[in-house]
Structures are given as structure tokens and as C-alpha cells.
């Protein structure tokens, strides 16, 4: 916790001049896999193949503590797969990775979450048939009432439930969802679902928040508020790693950008330096001739909608 406190002060000063990035990242090499001054996540030699296709082949990567790091790359670059690998939702063929020096190899996803690394999903996974407040309460950790033997006896967990509810209500108010408190989460709009998922992740009190395309399908009016929330996560001292296609957002809030293409990390650096990097331009052009990034966004969205429409079978598969 001490390390967090020092970091919090450093990020706060940097938040003012966010374009230059936090002090910890100043002077960091822009070569792929460069060393960071205070890495919270370190991954080595991670590969993941599906059949003959190598989806992820990351030699070395470090994620700076207390910073907002964006993971970008053309469609099919392996970003989401890499996310799944880091959070334990998929197992790599080779490699090792750690959170705060603790190896996460073979650690079940729920344990990864308990260690402080909580993720959201590309296709939001709010529990549509639970109310918004129940979704939030579910997020709280260490609930006595979640243990089988204690569950039937309300006097054992009633007090804690009140505390959890209080915390949930505070977060809902912050994320402007308090009016929806008693609604089924299924009735929320796409953007509200993203907000709810993020708020619910905060119920876990995570060190690292992993956001998989937080802006996908969010209407412009909500985008600004979402951006604000992501920044406020950093200001609270949390580390944020997010996958995103929306370049405006990447430029706006990220302290550091990592670019993936064909499973490999091809470049790192601040948003501006990365976007001027020839390797990055090549990577995007190589993947999609004559398409600029905004068209690419649309394509990805289309693919997502299609996937969503296809229902169960695909849902079973998209964890890969």
C-alpha cells in the first residue's frame, strides 16, 4: 500500500499535464518491451496459438503502475486474446507473467480478480436479469453471506450487506446510475451498461482495472463522462490497462500506448510518438489497405454486432 501512496502523488502531479505522461514513464524507451521504472504487470514470452494461427506472441512487456496504458492495434492483432491470457480467462501455450511480482501462471480467473486485477468485457457482461443494485452488490468481495453455511441466517450477514449497499450506492451516484438503481440491468442502454460494468468492477477494489473496449457502442454524450471516470481511476492510484479502437480516446487519456499487430508488440510510447511511428502505420496499412482508422472502427463494430446476434454458440467461443 505504501508504494501506492507515493504513486498516487506522482500521478496527481502528472494528471495536470497528462500529455507528457506520468513521471515514471518519462524517458522510458519506446522500443517494444521496454523497461518501466515501476512495473506492476510483467509478462514474458507469452504465446497462444489456435490451430495453426498464432494469435499472441509477446516477447516481453511491462505495464507501469498508476498509469493509463492503452493497448491498440488493427483488428485481429490479438489484443483481446492477450487480455484474456493476463486475466486467466485463457491459458497461453508458453510464457509467464506476474502481478506485483506474484506469478499468475495457471491461476484461475477468479483468483486473479481477488489478487486485484479486475477486467470488463468487450461485449458487456452486465447481468441483465438482476437489478442494477444487485449487480453492484455482487461485486463486493469477502461477503460472509456468500458462504453456504452462513447464507440462511440473515443476522450473520445483514449488517455487512448494508455496508455493501452503501458503497454500491455511492459508486452508482458517482457513475450517474443512481436513478436506475432498481431497474433490471437488461433495460440499460449500451453506454450505461459499460458504466455499470466499470462501477461493478470498482466494487472489488482492484489495483489494476482492465477495460476491454470501454467506448465501443457508447454514444458521444456518454463518452466524455466515461473518459472522466477512467481518468479518475488513475487519480485514485489505480493502474488502468485498456484495449481501444477509438483513437481520440487513446490520445486523450492514455499515458502510454502499446501497439500490437499480428500477435506481436510492434511499438510503444506516448500517444503522439506512437501515431507518428512508421512501424505502427505499416501495421495498420498491412492489415487493411486504404482504410483509415475510423472506418476500421465501424468494421469492428459490425463484426461485434454480428457476433452478438449469433447468440449462444459464439458466446461459448468468444472466451478464446
Amino acid at each position: 500500500m505504501d508504494a501506492d501512496m507515493t504513486d498516487q502523488t506522482s500521478t496527481e502531479t502528472n494528471a495536470v499535464a497528462s500529455k507528457t505522461g506520468p513521471a515514471g514513464l518519462v524517458g522510458a524507451s519506446t522500443e517494444p518491451g521496454s523497461k518501466k521504472s515501476d512495473p506492476i504487470i510483467v509478462a514474458d514470452k507469452i504465446t497462444r496459438t489456435f490451430g495453426g494461427l498464432t494469435a499472441v506472441d509477446v516477447d516481453h512487456v511491462e505495464i507501469q503502475r498508476g498509469a493509463i496504458t492503452a493497448l491498440i492495434g488493427p483488428n485481429g492483432a490479438g489484443k483481446t486474446t492477450f487480455f484474456n491470457l493476463l486475466t486467466g480467462f485463457d491459458q497461453p501455450n508458453t510464457g509467464s507473467w506476474s502481478l506485483e511480482g506474484k506469478s499468475l501462471k495457471g491461476v484461475a480467473p477468479y483468483k486473479v480478480a481477488r489478487l486485484g486485477m479486475v477486467r470488463t468485457f468487450q461485449l458487456t457482461k452486465v447481468l441483465a436479469k438482476l437489478t442494477v443494485i444487485e449487480n453492484m452488490r455482487l461485486g463486493a468481495t469477502g461477503q460472509k453471506g456468500e458462504r453456504f453455511w452462513a447464507a440462511p441466517f440473515k443476522f450473520l450477514w445483514g449488517k455487512q450487506e448494508d455496508e455493501v449497499t452503501k458503497k454500491a450506492d455511492d459508486l452508482l451516484a458517482r457513475f450517474l446510475l443512481d436513478k436506475k438503481r432498481e431497474d433490471f440491468a437488461g433495460s440499460l442502454s449500451g453506454g450505461q451498461r459499460k458504466l455499470l460494468e466499470m462501477a461493478r468492477a470498482l466494487m472489488v477494489d482492484p489495483e489494476v482495472v482492465m477495460l476491454d473496449e470501454p467506448m465501443a457502442g457508447v454514444n458521444p454524450a456518454l463518452k466524455q463522462s466515461l473518459l472522466g471516470h477512467v481518468k479518475s481511476l488513475r487519480d485514485e492510484g489505480r493502474t488502468v490497462l485498456f484495449v481501444e479502437h477509438d483513437m481520440d480516446m487513446v490520445r486523450d487519456i492514455s499515458d502510454w500506448v502499446i501497439v500490437m499487430a499480428q500477435g506481436k508488440i510492434v511499438a510503444e510510447g506516448t500517444a503522439d510518438s506512437v501515431m507518428a511511428d512508421q512501424r505502427v502505420i505499416d501495421a495498420y496499412l498491412g492489415a487493411h489497405h486504404d482504410t483509415d482508422l475510423s472506418e476500421l472502427d465501424e468494421e469492428v463494430l459490425e463484426a461485434e454486432v454480428e457476433a452478438e446476434l449469433e447468440g449462444d454458440i459464439v458466446q461459448e467461443e468468444d472466451s478464446k
Binding site: A303, E306, A307, E310, I313
Partner: peptide, 8 residues
């Protein structure tokens, strides 16, 4: 193998 892909 992949209904979504086949459909698209």
C-alpha cells in the same frame, strides 16, 4: 465450424 462466419 463457425456459424457467424458462415453467415457473414
Amino acid at each position: 465450424d463457425n456459424p457467424a462466419l458462415a453467415a457473414s
